[in-house]
Protein backbone atom coordinates (compact mmCIF):
# COMPACT_ATOMS: atom_id res chain seq x y z
CA UNK A 1 0.00 0.00 0.00
CA UNK A 2 1.27 3.43 -0.83
CA UNK A 3 -0.11 6.58 0.71
CA UNK A 4 -1.18 9.09 -1.89
CA UNK A 5 0.74 12.36 -1.74
CA UNK A 6 -1.43 15.30 -0.71
CA UNK A 7 -2.46 17.45 -3.65
CA UNK A 8 -0.77 20.78 -4.01
CA UNK A 9 -3.87 22.65 -2.82
CA UNK A 10 -3.99 20.40 0.26
CA UNK A 11 -0.27 20.96 0.84
CA UNK A 12 -0.64 24.72 0.55
CA UNK A 13 -3.68 24.76 2.81
CA UNK A 14 -1.63 22.85 5.39
CA UNK A 15 1.29 25.29 5.14
CA UNK A 16 -0.99 28.31 5.48
CA UNK A 17 -2.87 26.63 8.34
CA UNK A 18 0.44 26.16 10.17
CA UNK A 19 1.34 29.82 9.66
CA UNK A 20 -2.07 30.93 10.92
CA UNK A 21 -1.92 28.63 13.96
CA UNK A 22 1.65 29.64 14.86
CA UNK A 23 1.35 33.37 14.30
CA UNK A 24 -2.32 34.38 14.06
CA UNK A 25 -1.68 36.23 10.79
CA UNK A 26 -4.78 36.45 8.61
CA UNK A 27 -5.97 38.62 5.74
CA UNK A 28 -7.52 41.16 8.08
CA UNK A 29 -4.24 41.54 9.98
CA UNK A 30 -2.35 41.97 6.71
CA UNK A 31 -4.74 44.75 5.72
CA UNK A 32 -4.49 46.50 9.08
CA UNK A 33 -0.66 46.33 9.10
CA UNK A 34 -0.39 47.67 5.54
CA UNK A 35 -2.81 50.55 6.10
CA UNK A 36 -1.33 51.57 9.46
CA UNK A 37 2.22 51.31 8.12
CA UNK A 38 1.64 53.52 5.10
CA UNK A 39 -0.28 56.03 7.24
CA UNK A 40 2.99 56.39 9.23
CA UNK A 41 5.10 56.47 6.07
CA UNK A 42 3.07 59.30 4.56
CA UNK A 43 3.55 61.45 7.67
CA UNK A 44 7.24 60.67 8.08
CA UNK A 45 9.55 63.59 7.31
CA UNK A 46 12.39 61.25 6.28
CA UNK A 47 10.73 58.89 3.80
CA UNK A 48 7.26 60.42 3.33
CA UNK A 49 8.44 62.82 0.60
CA UNK A 50 9.94 59.96 -1.46
CA UNK A 51 6.62 58.12 -1.45
CA UNK A 52 4.77 61.37 -2.18
CA UNK A 53 6.89 61.86 -5.30
CA UNK A 54 6.47 58.31 -6.57
CA UNK A 55 2.89 57.51 -5.52
CA UNK A 56 1.43 61.01 -5.87
CA UNK A 57 -2.36 60.86 -5.58
CA UNK A 58 -2.55 57.12 -6.29
CA UNK A 59 -2.50 55.84 -2.72
CA UNK A 60 -5.67 53.73 -2.97
CA UNK A 61 -4.37 51.46 -5.75
CA UNK A 62 -0.96 51.36 -4.05
CA UNK A 63 -2.53 50.17 -0.79
CA UNK A 64 -4.48 47.49 -2.65
CA UNK A 65 -1.25 46.38 -4.32
CA UNK A 66 0.64 46.32 -1.01
CA UNK A 67 -2.14 44.29 0.66
CA UNK A 68 -1.86 41.82 -2.22
CA UNK A 69 1.93 41.75 -1.86
CA UNK A 70 1.90 41.10 1.88
CA UNK A 71 -0.92 38.58 1.53
CA UNK A 72 1.23 36.71 -1.01
CA UNK A 73 4.26 36.85 1.26
CA UNK A 74 2.57 36.02 4.58
CA UNK A 75 -0.27 33.76 3.45
CA UNK A 76 0.96 32.48 0.06
CA UNK A 77 -2.15 33.75 -1.65
CA UNK A 78 -0.37 34.38 -4.95
CA UNK A 79 -2.44 37.57 -5.37
CA UNK A 80 0.51 39.84 -6.14
CA UNK A 81 2.48 39.47 -9.33
CA UNK A 82 4.97 42.20 -10.02
CA UNK A 83 8.59 43.20 -10.19
CA UNK A 84 9.49 45.24 -7.11
CA UNK A 85 13.19 44.89 -7.92
CA UNK A 86 12.85 46.84 -11.16
CA UNK A 87 10.51 49.38 -9.51
CA UNK A 88 13.12 50.06 -6.81
CA UNK A 89 16.08 50.19 -9.17
CA UNK A 90 14.41 53.19 -10.83
CA UNK A 91 14.48 55.16 -7.57
CA UNK A 92 17.78 56.95 -7.85
CA UNK A 93 17.35 59.18 -4.79
CA UNK A 94 16.79 56.34 -2.31
CA UNK A 95 19.67 55.67 0.10
CA UNK A 96 20.34 52.93 2.69
CA UNK A 97 19.21 55.20 5.55
CA UNK A 98 15.79 55.41 3.90
CA UNK A 99 15.54 51.63 4.15
CA UNK A 100 16.53 51.81 7.82
CA UNK A 101 13.70 54.25 8.49
CA UNK A 102 11.27 52.15 6.44
CA UNK A 103 12.16 49.12 8.57
CA UNK A 104 11.91 51.10 11.80
CA UNK A 105 8.38 52.19 10.94
CA UNK A 106 7.47 48.69 9.82
CA UNK A 107 8.72 47.19 13.10
CA UNK A 108 6.78 49.82 15.08
CA UNK A 109 3.59 49.10 13.14
CA UNK A 110 3.93 45.33 13.44
CA UNK A 111 4.46 45.52 17.20
CA UNK A 112 1.50 47.87 17.62
CA UNK A 113 -0.93 45.77 15.59
CA UNK A 114 0.14 42.15 15.82
CA UNK A 115 0.63 39.64 18.60
CA UNK A 116 4.38 39.00 19.14
CA UNK A 117 4.62 35.85 16.95
CA UNK A 118 2.95 37.58 14.03
CA UNK A 119 5.08 40.71 14.46
CA UNK A 120 8.23 38.55 14.32
CA UNK A 121 6.99 36.83 11.16
CA UNK A 122 6.18 40.14 9.42
CA UNK A 123 9.47 41.76 10.44
CA UNK A 124 11.55 38.74 9.40
CA UNK A 125 10.08 38.89 5.89
CA UNK A 126 10.45 42.67 5.74
CA UNK A 127 14.11 42.47 6.83
CA UNK A 128 14.96 39.86 4.21
CA UNK A 129 13.14 41.66 1.42
CA UNK A 130 14.70 45.01 2.33
CA UNK A 131 18.19 43.45 2.39
CA UNK A 132 17.60 41.87 -0.96
CA UNK A 133 16.40 45.12 -2.55
CA UNK A 134 19.33 47.00 -1.04
CA UNK A 135 21.82 44.47 -2.38
CA UNK A 136 20.43 45.08 -5.84
CA UNK A 137 20.37 48.87 -5.43
CA UNK A 138 23.61 49.52 -3.59
CA UNK A 139 25.63 46.46 -4.55
CA UNK A 140 29.29 46.71 -3.56
CA UNK A 141 31.23 43.54 -4.34
CA UNK A 142 33.82 44.00 -1.56
CA UNK A 143 31.16 44.57 1.08
CA UNK A 144 29.17 41.62 -0.18
CA UNK A 145 32.23 39.38 0.02
CA UNK A 146 32.88 40.55 3.57
CA UNK A 147 29.27 39.97 4.56
CA UNK A 148 29.34 36.45 3.11
CA UNK A 149 32.61 35.66 4.86
CA UNK A 150 31.27 36.90 8.18
CA UNK A 151 28.08 34.90 7.71
CA UNK A 152 30.00 31.71 6.97
CA UNK A 153 32.52 32.30 9.72
CA UNK A 154 35.39 32.72 7.25
CA UNK A 155 37.97 35.36 8.10
Amino acid sequence: MTTALPSRSERRAQIVQTVVEKTGVDEDMVRRVVHAFYAKVRLDPHIGPIFARVIGQDWDPHLVKMCDFWSSVMLMSGRYKGNPMVAHLRLKSVRPDHFERWLELFRQTASEICPPEAAVAFVMRADNIASSLQLAMFYRPAERLQANSAQHGVT
Binding site: S72, N83, M85, R125, N128, I129, L133
Partner: peptide, 15 residues
Amino acid sequence: PDECIDCGVCEPECP
Protein backbone atom coordinates in the same frame (compact mmCIF):
# COMPACT_ATOMS: atom_id res chain seq x y z
CA PRO B 1 19.26 35.62 -8.14
CA ASP B 2 18.91 39.26 -9.21
CA GLU B 3 15.12 39.07 -9.29
CA CYS B 4 14.41 37.02 -6.15
CA ILE B 5 13.45 39.30 -3.25
CA ASP B 6 14.18 36.67 -0.64
CA CYS B 7 10.61 36.50 0.65
CA GLY B 8 10.97 32.75 1.29
CA VAL B 9 7.44 31.83 0.21
CA CYS B 10 8.63 29.19 -2.26
CA GLU B 11 10.79 27.22 0.17
CA PRO B 12 8.09 25.30 2.11
CA GLU B 13 6.00 25.04 -1.04
CA CYS B 14 8.39 22.67 -2.84
CA PRO B 15 7.28 19.02 -2.41
